[in-house]
Design a protein around this nucleic acid. Structure first.
Lengths: 110, 110
DNA sequence: TCTCTATATGTAGACAGTCTAGTTATCGGG
DNA sequence: CCCGATAACTAGACTGTCTACATATAGAGA
């Protein structure tokens, strides 16, 4: 996987794994890794800034918790985050359709 | 379409429209616009640097021509470019599958 | 006990590709 | 004569991702 192919789509993935249940950062990382079949091992230097960005945007809400002597910041999808996720999904569908249309060999549509 | 959703996938699109026939920059722009159903109007500030990058990489070969008093630089896909295109197509398939897997609502695979 | 791994969060700075906005130039139509 | 389409190109801004680093706890195993 090219390193920056995700550019512009990472937010969607994070919102998607937070849809089912609130997770803390490290768990988000693992959830994405699992649901991508191991293909995506996103570095913490990508994840944490993205989470803060999403929080600033009001799409997730973070809360500190102590669990077994370790501090965790658990993020929960907000209403605005749900709407953003729906928009991201629609956007992805459009984007994928466009790329596949151009990438498809042979026919050039009228 | 988010402005930088293409990030990392533009090269693939350019190589794809050059697969059928050699085109000059402006024609590449139009070909992508047409084959994307009008969704992608990529600015020349994105296109021309990308073409030069692809030429430096040896994936396309450019040649100056004069047509009706206007100079054109026509780009042709090289053998290496064909291989790169095949690789980009495979990469896109993988990428799309991964994103869709994570984005898909409901089930979290084991 | 000591060490190593996994857990857990975060920052600083590099990097690179895309975009904005601009330049130059020819041709054809109104 | 001017304007829009064609045609190519650059400088610099922008921004999101990555590399590498820093910190700290818990638990397993030697």
């Amino acid at each position: 996987m090219k390193s920056d192919a995700l550019r512009g789509h990472l937010d969607a993935l994070i919102l998607a794994v937070l849809e089912k249940e609130p997770l803390h950062g490290y768990a988000v990382m693992q959830a994405i890794q699992v649901s991508s079949g191991g293909a995506l091992e996103l570095p913490t230097g990508s994840l944490y800034p993205a989470l803060r960005r999403l929080e600033r945007a009001g799409y997730v809400q973070g809360e500190w918790r102590m669990v077994g002597g370790r501090r965790r910041r658990t993020y929960e999808l907000t209403k605005a985050g749900e709407r953003a996720l729906a928009a991201e999904r629609a956007e992805w569908r459009d984007f994928a359709a466009v790329v596949e249309g151009v990438l498809r060999p042979g026919t050039t549509p009228a």
